[in-house]
Write a protein that binds this DNA or RNA. Structure first.
Length: 564
RNA sequence: GCCCUGAUAGCUCAGCUGGAUAGAGCACCGGAUUUCUAAUCCGGUGGUCGCAGGUUCAAGUCCUGCUCAGGGUACCA
């Protein structure tokens, strides 16, 4: 429709089709039709009133799939609703499950580095950000046809393991095998405390970490046990969140590859020694602080490991794009690390993307301000505690509103977690997330449960209809303002999800779901579908809405209960 | 000091490539249920788009300067 309009317009005025296409816009107000052309630019060229120009041009354009209406200085184009509705529904019915998916990314691979917690610590509430944003990036790209590799780059190496190993170095093999995670975490905390009072503890930890690095048997055993236990613990939470990874290769894996990496950078001739440290100067990239590859004491750093991991991933997956989902405080690190790759003239350097996000703030009722995920006593807020509380609150509401519902506890889990997850994804990544149970577990308005409810409600109508849904013989019942708006909105899902992919922004999908749900609920209040004479065609509304919402929510990693 | 990010209704946020009257939700006020799920819907109150210039027929959107807030600024990750 756009191209057709542009072609006709271009032949009437002194402009190329491309230029006309650029000027054509989608009006904000739906009453203005599907597309519009502003005539302001022309008034300068033609030296005529834009209102007059709009009238003149509008008379000269004609087609059967839209009508033209001059409104002031604009020419508005209103689609032939019958034609548009038929197109959308035919496409929808051709493959209901695939609607909203695409093969845009066919043959392309992207890797997403996300979640990446440190082991030997529980998952804290703030981990939900990287985990769910990354999970959503994975899901939306898969939906767009990409081959996606989700990587949990575990923090499973570092001097902190010295403390843990020191705590258990006198245990025998059997005792080590019987350790549980709580004992390890307690020991770690205890050793840290002890080190503050007694510097010899720190020395011991350092020597234990050296044992680990040199491959000492028992140190290795303790480390492995700690890793296994932590991962099992993480997996339990990930399962609740519906998150999975294709690789759990962490930092430790790259330890023996760092020397090679450093050689590779040195061979590129871009390294310097500065104050005893091995650096890559990045002044020519407009970055005033250099990237450190090796400290003056010989130890490697974060950037060294990330460089090694990036090279390894490229060799392994030959990715076309790599996302790193971390908080925005690490922006400089990624700028440096990507610039080093570029300076090394590696082919994938231009395909590296940092997807930064704002911090998670928790409302502190006693101080009346937003705090960084710690309680008054300085304790971190555990992710599982939040999920449990959310589930409990969901259950209370179910008991109150749907006492007869089947699988209550399962639905409560889906709703409670859905609320927390959606709350995390509904705004642009860069915004700080301000978390309060009152907002997040509020089930009204722009929330996860509102969307789950809308989807369940739509699905319920379809279930009660109970017959096969076929392409209607005519579309008269579907071209009223309210149903036409819904069909138009549903039809934008493919472009919406592609935009979400290219910007790496889950909130774009979240917004789509909210807008669609609002349109549907409004329609639902006005039109009684099952009693309508046109039920056989109207049933397509809840059918399309429930499918589109399910697809959208699944891209966000929010579960969709069949009934609630 | 330098760099990055943010600033839109009382609160939390949308506003895509500059276009028509700046939109939602929450909160507040008032309505709707013998009818497919009221976790819903309808209406109302509420705005100097941080400030000041500039570009343009047209600026919340682009440019410059400033203010405030947060973060980062080589041997942590």
């Amino acid at each position: 429709m756009k191209v057709e309009i542009a072609t006709q317009l271009a032949s009437l005025i002194e402009m190329s089709i491309d230029d006309v296409v650029k000027l054509i816009e989608v009006p904000k107000n739906t009453e203005h039709g599907e597309l519009a052309f502003p005539c302001f630019v022309l008034s300068k060229i033609l030296k005529k009133n834009p209102v007059q120009i709009a009238k003149d041009l509008s008379d000269k354009i004609s087609a059967n799939n839209f009508i033209t209406v001059p409104v002031g200085p604009y020419i508005n184009f209103k689609a032939n609703r019958q034609v548009l509705v038929k197109d959308v529904i035919s496409e929808f019915l051709a493959d209901t499950d695939k609607f909203g998916s695409s093969d845009f990314g066919q043959g392309k691979t992207i890797v997403v580095d996300f979640s990446s917690p440190n082991i030997a610590k529980p998952l804290a509430f703030h981990h939900i950000r990287s985990t769910m944003i990354g999970n959503s990036l994975v899901k939306m790209h898969r939906n767009a046809g990409y081959n996606v590799v989700g990587i949990n780059h575990l923090g499973d190496w570092g001097t902190q393991f010295g403390y843990i190993i020191a705590a258990f170095k006198d245990c025998d093999e059997e005792q080590i095998n019987n350790l549980n995670l709580k004992e390890i975490i307690d020991a770690y905390v205890g050793m840290n405390k002890a080190a503050k009072e007694d510097s010899s503890v720190e020395d011991m930890a350092r020597s234990c970490f050296l044992d680990l690095e040199s491959g000492h048997n028992k140190a290795r055993l303790i480390w492995q046990k700690c890793r296994d236990l932590s991962l099992a613990e993480f997996e339990r939470v990930y399962r609740r969140l519906g998150v999975s990874f294709d690789s759990n290769i962490g930092e430790a894996f790259f330890e023996d590859k760092l020397e090679n990496l450093i050689k590779q950078v040195e061979n590129a001739g871009i390294t310097n020694i500065s104050d005893g440290a091995l650096i890559v100067d990045l002044e020519d990239y407009g970055i005033t602080t250099p990237c450190l590859l090796r400290k003056s004491d010989g130890a490697t750093l974060y950037a060294t490991r990330d460089l090694a991991a990036a090279c390894y991933r490229y060799e392994t997956y030959k990715f076309d794009k790599a996302f790193y989902v971390t908080d925005s405080g690490q922006s400089l690190h990624f700028k440096q690390f990507f610039s080093v790759l570029d300076k090394m003239q590696l082919p994938f350097a231009k395909n590296m993307y940092h997807a930064p996000f704002g911090v998670l703030l928790v409302w502190d009722e006693t101080t009346k301000e937003w705090t960084k995920g710690r309680t008054r006593s300085g304790q971190i807020v555990l992710l599982e505690d939040i999920l449990d509380e959310a589930t409990k609150r969901a259950m209370d509401i179910i008991q109150d509103k749907r006492p007869d519902l089947a699988n209550k506890s399962q639905v409560a889990e889906q709703i409670g977690i859905g609320a927390v997850v959606f709350n995390d994804l509904k705004h642009r990544r860069i915004k700080d997330v301000k978390f309060s149970f009152e907002d997040a577990i509020n089930f009204e308005g722009e929330t996860g449960p509102y969307l789950q409810y809308s989807a369940a409600r739509a699905a319920s109508v379809v279930r009660k209809y109970g017959k096969e849904i076929k392409l209607p013989e005519n579309f008269n019942a579907l071209i009223s303002d309210s149903s036409f708006e819904i069909i138009k909105k549903v039809s934008t899902l493919p472009e919406v999800s592609l935009r979400a992919c290219s910007e790496g922004e889950p909130y774009i999908i979240a917004n789509f779901c909210l807008e669609l749900a609002a349109l549907f609920n409004s329609f639902y209040a006005k039109v009684h579908i099952l009693d309508n004479v046109d039920v056989d065609s109207l049933i397509l509304i809840p059918e399309m809405v429930s499918k589109a919402l399910s697809k959208g929510l699944s891209m966000l990693g929010v579960a969709v209960p069949e009934q609630m």
